[in-house]
Simulated scan of single mutants.
Amino acid sequence: MKLPQNKSVLIAISIALVITIWLLSGVFSPKEAKVGHSVSEDNIQKEVTVLVENQTAHDHADVIRLYGHTQSDREVEIKAETEGNISEVLVEKGTFVKQGDIIARINIDDRQRTLQSAQALVRQRQLEFEASRKLSQKSFRSQTKLAEAEALLNAAQAQLESARLDLEQTNIKAPFDGKLESRTVEVGDYVSKGSLIAKVVDLSPIVIQVEISENKISKIQDGQPAQALLNDGRTVHGIVRFVASTSDSSTRTYKIEIEGENPNNEISAGLTTQVRLEVGSQKAYRVSPAILTLSDEGVVGVKTVDNNNIVVFHPVNLLDDTPEGIWVSGLPDTARIILRGQEYVSAGQTVTTVTKDQLSNDQPAPAASLVQKQEN
């Protein structure tokens, strides 16, 4: 069955009209949606409210933090100065000794008789010398004979001193107050001159050694106060007693020694420590870590609001970390710091500000207000 010609034309026109309408709807609808979205975003941006607080910078100590370890003030290896068998051991390792305490004894053997013989020889030579001197004064003895008698007396006295010293060296003594860190001999051991007997370390004062970079060494002076925190929580207060004049050839760092009190030798050598050195002061703010933010380049900073309510990003330096907050530098002397809402705004954006006092008068919190607007 064939449709009339005029009816076919009518159908074609209808189809063309539908297609035209559909095409037109595709052209204008995205533009309208885009404009509406842009307007919505602009409204959100203009309505952002942030919590701010007016703060003033304070003088804060400029601190250098270094890591090091404790070490003894001095230590010495005690070696035998004479030979013989160990006859007695009086001190166990780990014991604290006083200067002059006897650690061990070497068998005397015939040293006492040698000493007595040397004493007798000295008395003999003394009498001979006195007789020669009197005869020389009366011209009955030549000056040569007098000099010979004097030489024999001096030799006998030297022999006596050697015998006395050899006998005394059988007592092995502590050279200073300290801890007997090790002892390598037992009763019956034979030792010769130079044999290692024991090792004594002095832990009072305790010494803390650290390394500092070349760009900070100029800030450190002898006698400068220092503070060290041990891993177990104990704190050592002391002073800088040594600053190296030359750097390590491999690390290009300088050695620093700090000495602190160590009552009862409670602090051992070899403990890891964190050293705190104050090298001046600078203007800084104590803030909560929560307000720190990152720039697009990954720089840590704090956002503030200027007098025109425009957001400003300030890169900051972390100076100190305390239980009450962190100290940062890099902000102006006075600043309107954003406490809440800093993550929702960017530098150069105009915002509405509210203070804590205004919030206490039933003002909405900035972050919550912003989230509600975005959801709507």
Rank of each mutant, 00 (worst) to 15 (best):
E261A: 11
V200P: 03
Q372G: 01
S29C: 00
D306P: 03
Q45V: 04
S288T: 14
A156E: 03
P175Q: 05
D306H: 08
S218F: 10
L271A: 10
D101R: 05
D110M: 03
L331E: 02
P289C: 05
G233K: 10
A290G: 00
F313W: 00
E261L: 14
I337D: 01
L229Q: 14
L331I: 08
E186F: 01
A118L: 06
V305T: 02
I13P: 00
Q126F: 06
I13N: 10
Q372N: 14
R164M: 06
I326M: 11
P175K: 06
A104E: 05
I208M: 09
E75V: 00
Q342R: 03
V35A: 13
V97M: 09
L294S: 13
N171K: 15
Q5L: 13
Q159M: 11
L339M: 13
N154Q: 12
S204P: 01
V9G: 01
T352R: 15
S29W: 09
I217F: 05
V63M: 10
M1D: 10
G194M: 11
K179V: 12
D189C: 08
A33S: 07
A57E: 06
Q358Y: 02
Y344Q: 11
T355R: 07
E297K: 12
S268L: 13
L135S: 07
P364K: 13
P289D: 10
A269V: 09
L277D: 03
I326H: 06
S250M: 14
E297F: 00
V27I: 15
V35M: 10
S8K: 15
L292I: 12
R105C: 02
T304V: 04
R252S: 11
L135T: 06
R65P: 00
K2M: 09
N376W: 02
N376R: 12
V240A: 04
G178H: 04
D109L: 10
V27P: 00
W327F: 14
V275D: 07
V275C: 07
V89W: 04
N171I: 01
Q274G: 02
R105E: 11
V63K: 07
V300R: 02
E324A: 15
H69D: 06
K34G: 02
E181N: 09
P366K: 08
L127Y: 05
K46P: 01
P315G: 06
E83D: 12
E278F: 11
D232F: 10
D202A: 14
V39E: 10
K255F: 04
A228D: 04
V287T: 09
L121D: 12
S213N: 09
S245R: 14
Q159D: 05
Q363D: 07
A284D: 05
R141E: 15
V275S: 08
V185S: 05
N171M: 12
S192W: 00
I239G: 01
G270D: 05
S8I: 15
S295Y: 04
I15P: 00
R65K: 14
